[in-house]
Amino acid sequence: MGNLTRAFVSERTAGCIVTGFVLALPFLLSFNPYYTSVFVSALILGAVAIAWNLLAGVCGQVSFGHAAFFGIGAYTSAVLVTKWGFSPYLGLVAGGVFGGLGSLIIGIPAFRLRGPYFALAILGFAEVMKLLALNLTWLTEGSLGIMNIAPLPPLEVGSLKIDFYASRTTNYYVVALLMFAVYLVVYFLRRSNLGLAMSAVHGDDETAAGIGVNVFRTKAIALTVSATCTGVMGAFYAHYVRFLSPDTAFDGYWSVMPIVASLFGGMSALIGPMAGALVITGLDEFVFKRFFETGHKLFFGLLLAVVIVWAPTGLLGNRVGKRSEGDKR
């Protein structure tokens, strides 16, 4: 009552609306392969943004280097599949595992740092990973990149054969499924006691420690889960694009755009980053590119400035609320 931060829509409703929109989108685009592929990228970005926001929006630790975990996931799966003949499905899992392990390598030292210093440490880690991918040529083929990565093999469900090689639409629905899985992980994590600890660390990490929260462990779990989800998306990307080079897998795009999408969509809503990714992709594709064929990406910067100045909580910021305990009494 009289609470300014009172939600208009619950997180669950917002999640359902956005997911429904994602499922309907190929129909709205009348299965145009070009637009479908554009939105496959948008969903990959959205899933990474949701994962990024678990660390930043829920636990309060901003990372400038999620490209590191994306690239690790992509390279792990690509190398396992092309060099050692693993199944690409196993590659997705391995991509996630290695993304998570990579996050521990940097997380353990970096969590001694706070705020911007932590963010920069992760940025540095992403650069180191990119250089490793460039120079470990026996493993990664260096700057030549890994070519002809196997696509996800067809799935046969009864008489129905789902082919990921031929159809963009099937790829679209796989990535939609992955995105939804990432969302569910983040959703249930925040509702758990661990999520409560993350919110406490976000609020004030000294006070959180004072009431018995193991701050370091809480941050490390948030980072590892976030990086694992990002790694899975990187692995999917490898099998979707079927070509990897250090410049594409560890591209700064995967560090910067999740932040842009999250700020745009709203960091306080878990589904916000996904909505942000869809909206900026839509704007870019249907508005900016139409009028400014070269340099349309400049508008992301402009858009971001507009959002930060006029709507710092993002599109869904104040309209989607977390389920607040104690609210119903």
């Binding site: 409560l196 919110s199 406490a200 609020g203 004030d204 959180a208 607040s324 305990e325 104690g326 609210d327």
Partner: peptide, 8 residues
Amino acid sequence: FPEMTVFE
């Protein structure tokens, strides 16, 4: 913790 209710 400002984002959490009194209860939380």
